[in-house]
Design a protein around this nucleic acid. Structure first.
Length: 112
DNA sequence: TGGTTGACGGTGG
DNA sequence: TCCACCGCCAACC
């Protein structure tokens, strides 16, 4: 895990990126794909997240572009609840103030 | 090896 | 603002 991109499979890199998203912050499928080294693989990231049931991977912090929630294996309401519990304001199916809660490795010094 | 599958993204209506 | 379309991609089958 040197830097954000290493030589493991794309799926492994994606999981490592997601594990770094801090509580109270979110990242988009596209951002995660970029941090994993494949800027256009947002959709592939979604496929990987689809089978992510591990407790050590905060998959609820990965949302779609524009603040849209995206899916959560048929439990979108749970995703909203988990985000709200971390202090993230969600209106309808949209995360508010995306600019403030959006996280990326490059900006982590500015966290909070 | 080759086609299918979507927790996606951007554009256009 | 919402929806339909099309383009992209790694994992699956």
């Amino acid at each position: 895990v040197s830097g954000v991109v290493h030589r493991s499979s794309f799926a492994s890199r994606v999981l490592s990126v997601v594990r770094r998203i801090p509580p109270g912050r979110v990242s988009t499928y596209g951002d995660v794909a970029a941090m994993a080294g494949r800027p256009r693989a947002a959709r592939a990231v979604g496929n990987i997240m689809r089978g992510c049931a591990r407790p050590d991977v905060p998959c609820h912090r990965v949302i779609a572009a524009g603040g849209r929630l995206g899916g959560y294996g048929g439990h979108e309401m749970l995703k909203r609840a988990l985000l709200a519990a971390e202090g993230i304001t969600v209106a309808g199916s949209r995360v508010r103030e995306l600019g403030r809660v959006r996280w990326s490795a490059a900006r982590r010094k500015a966290t909070r």
